[in-house]
Design a protein around this nucleic acid. Structure first.
Lengths: 202, 202
DNA sequence: GTCTATAAGTCGATAGAC
DNA sequence: GTCTATCGACTTATAGAC
């Protein structure tokens, strides 16, 4: 069952490259990074990396998947999606290179035939659904205005998070999580002006 | 004063290239476009284009500047920034290639030494200021909740617009301007729950 | 002012030694 | 499993003919 050992070792090395790459990007940023640069950073030759990954784009897509996985694990205990998003944003401010990598790849993956296109489509779909579900739960619990459209709010919150990252990178003084938290607090505090406390109005 | 004619002609040709490129991008999109492709599309050789623009990046930055100029002219009559933004979004849905170009270049310009970095820093700064001013005007006129932070709202609205573009490109069914309009209507409808109509409370 | 031709470089990917 | 070496494609930018 343990195989010839090489399989498990290969997987471990893959993982190591992924983590290494993730850390390298966090620190020194994504500057249209070539495989050669990345290889140097993880102490391997360019050919060495391609022994583990089929292509550059596949590697990049997996780096982002890995990031999502780590973020997901880190904030798994948070049941409120909005708070988790704010927490992720606060964390992102510590890893500017990753934010940059993400912005660049998500823009590129916009093209229909980009290798990571499907991944991003599914990713946003999943995030929206998760977020909207969390909102609906809060709504039934009376912790969030029931008249707001959960799907649209989820979409807008995620869009704001993405957009804030660009503005933050261009102006690091601006606090991403503050803005997101402010928006969420405003939405949470909304109450319908045209409905009376009593149901017997009119 | 008219010079030898060549100066004015050169400017006109520059303008023509810019407009052509803008239209090409609107239609067929930005696929890591090379100068050669773009040259072919505007009926010029690659070297011919570089006769008018110093480099590829400079050309791309000027294309976006041109777009801003046209958008600005088109919605100049709108005094409410939010409505102008919604209108621009509605227009953007007709020019997916441009939206893609914008997403890619703004992500790339995030890098401090990118040729268009300063342009984007100034652009966002200007947009935020303009938007916030418009909000403050509405606030004094009593047309927007006075207790909301104009600068933060402006920032968030712009961020939402940017983020919606990515989600729309990955899922064209989603209507960017609808989401933006919805968010704006929610914010506009906020009224403070803890302030009484009368000033003499407490 | 616009072209062809090409310089000079980088990239991802592959082949093959070890 | 990791390397060196190299291929071939493609890039921007330049030189120089017309």
């Amino acid at each position: 069952m343990a195989g010839r050992g090489s399989y498990a070792k290969g997987l471990a090395k893959r993982e190591e490259i992924l983590r290494s790459a993730l850390e390298v990007f966090s620190r020194q940023g994504y500057r249209g990074t070539s495989l050669r640069e990345l290889a140097k950073a993880v102490n391997l030759s360019q050919a060495g990396i391609l022994h583990y990954f089929d292509s550059k784009e596949q590697l990049f897509a997996e780096i982002l998947r890995k990031r999502d996985e780590l973020d997901g694990a880190r904030y798994a205990e948070t049941d409120e999606a909005a708070h988790a998003l704010v927490a992720v944003m606060r964390h992102n401010a510590e890893v500017p290179g990753l934010v940059q990598l993400y912005a660049n790849i998500s823009a590129a993956a916009t093209e229909a035939d980009h290798p990571a296109h499907d991944y991003f489509v599914r990713r946003y779909d999943g995030m929206r659904r998760m977020f909207a579900d969390s909102i609906r739960t809060q709504q039934t619990a009376g912790q969030f205005p029931a008249e707001l459209d959960a799907d649209m709010i989820a979409t807008v919150m995620i869009a704001t998070a993405d957009g804030m990252q660009v503005q933050w990178m261009l102006d690091p003084e601006r606090d991403m999580s503050d803005h997101l938290e402010y928006l969420w607090s405003l939405l949470s505090g909304i109450h319908q002006p045209d409905r009376r406390p009593s149901e017997s109005a009119q």
